[in-house]
Design a protein around this nucleic acid. Structure first.
Lengths: 254, 254
DNA sequence: AATTTTATTGCAACTTTTTGCGGATTTGAT
DNA sequence: ATCAAATCCGCAAAAAGTTGCAATAAAATT
């Protein structure tokens, strides 16, 4: 970032600012002052004008691009469209007559919502909201695995659930995750981890559904090795480069 | 976990926090402080602002995603004002330290919604929606009695629930009913009736909550005799003439 | 070209915002 | 009940923003 010595017209300067904003999505007034060799007061006036004109968003300390993702949508589920894609792919794993264990999380709930209407299968779940969603389906059987409820995530945990899971031999288990990297699936809550372990143990095959943003993240508690799961379902196409390091024998990426 | 960045704008920092929240559903202030290289005080201020704006839920130690919060839709409940009155009366039966079994139905759910915020008690329930409502309470413990779910009433039934109930000795059981007359409590669904019987057996005392409209009605399956219950809670004042024939030794009408 | 008019810029004094820190207080778990 | 972690509170310093104003530059006018 070298200061630009030649005297600039206001128009040019503002054009330069916009270029920086579009390039970096953000800019500090102080940096601009240095780059353009004008006082910060001038920069601030420029930014205010550009903000007035709706070209950018002025914030304390600088400005942000209008396209910057600072406007969160609170009421709607985060990354819903991605989750819908994932849910549709995961739904293909379920066949008539199967016994399926479902975990918690919004992605799994979305899956429960998108089950084919003529599906005939038996579902076990530990999530209140997933269970409610499953109750809307006309032909499936739903069994809730009771236990102590975790308030934040609205799933049941504890010895009760785990001993019940130990009695089950399901065909498939589908769960979300907090974090996944090339080595293992990790999570933040000890109780939830224990239940997830039991879910995997209780199923012939296990699927992990997750938005691709979580690929490469790690949390403190390990659920299982990546090799312990059979299907990885994300919003990416199966041949996406992001799966480098995830591919291995016995793991199907959907 | 994340690289340290130079001079981040507040808005950027908050956007980062929201992304973490949406990604992992929960986040610790300490971790955020480390990731963003700012003091925990700053993080806490950010979290409070975001909570103020309704973007997340602030909790001790960090924050939670808002997407896990039961949004109660009161407008759809029939005779809500009556049920609110009933719920408030029934709530007086519950004291700190109690073990309470709650059944299904909108009146009981309304009760769950109106529990005093500082109540410390343990609740067992068979209803998904009641359980979700209970999850919003800060200090109570909630245990879901799992089983086969009945789709339209969203409660769990079956041998599973009943054998679990047989292991419980609660202080109080609160249930709604389909019909009540001067002789007995009756209902329409065999499975639900069996669970209710087990609930009563598992509790020292039992309360029936119902809107006064149902007084004098009868269904095909008997849950119990009127003498088997200890409290009858309706929207009427305790001395209302409608209770003629209901009054007896050991039955408190609220 | 000279002059008036208008706009832009930097500066100084002052206000507001943001942030980190010490210490008191509350909370949650044991 | 006890104890460490988390929170709250007030404060002070640094950073950013605001305002008025004079100096200067650009534009318009004669």
């Amino acid at each position: 970032m070298h200061p630009i010595q030649t005297q600039m017209l206001k128009r040019e300067r503002q054009a330069f600012i916009m270029k920086q904003i579009n390039l970096h999505n953000r800019i500090l007034s102080a940096d601009l002052g240095l780059m353009l060799n004008v006082s910060e007061d001038t920069i601030r006036r420029d930014l205010n004008e550009l903000a007035e004109a709706g070209e950018l968003v002025k914030v304390h300390g600088g400005a942000l691009s209008k396209s910057y993702h600072y406007d969160y949508a609170p009421s709607t589920t985060y990354a819903l469209s991605e989750k819908t894609v994932i849910a549709q792919k995961a739904a293909t794993l379920i066949e008539d007559g199967m016994f399926v264990i479902l975990g918690g999380g919004t992605t799994v709930r979305e899956l429960a919502r998108l089950l084919p209407v003529d599906l005939k299968a038996t579902f076990f779940t530990i999530s209140l909201t997933t269970a409610l969603q499953l109750c809307d389906h006309p032909t499936i059987d739903v069994i809730f695995l009771g236990g102590t409820l975790v308030k934040n995530s609205q799933i049941s945990v504890g010895g009760e659930v785990i001993s019940r899971l130990n009695e089950i031999k399901a065909d498939l288990c589908i769960m979300g995750t907090n974090a996944i990297d090339t080595e293992c699936i990790t999570d933040t809550d000890l109780e939830a981890v224990q239940v997830k372990k039991a879910m995997i143990k209780a199923s012939k095959r296990s699927a992990v559904v997750t938005i691709s943003e979580k690929l490469g993240s790690t949390q403190k508690l390990q659920v299982c090795e990546l090799s312990d799961i059979d299907y990885l379902v994300t919003d990416l196409p199966a041949d996406a480069p992001q799966f480098l390091g995830y591919r291995r024998e016995g793991l199907v990426i959907l």
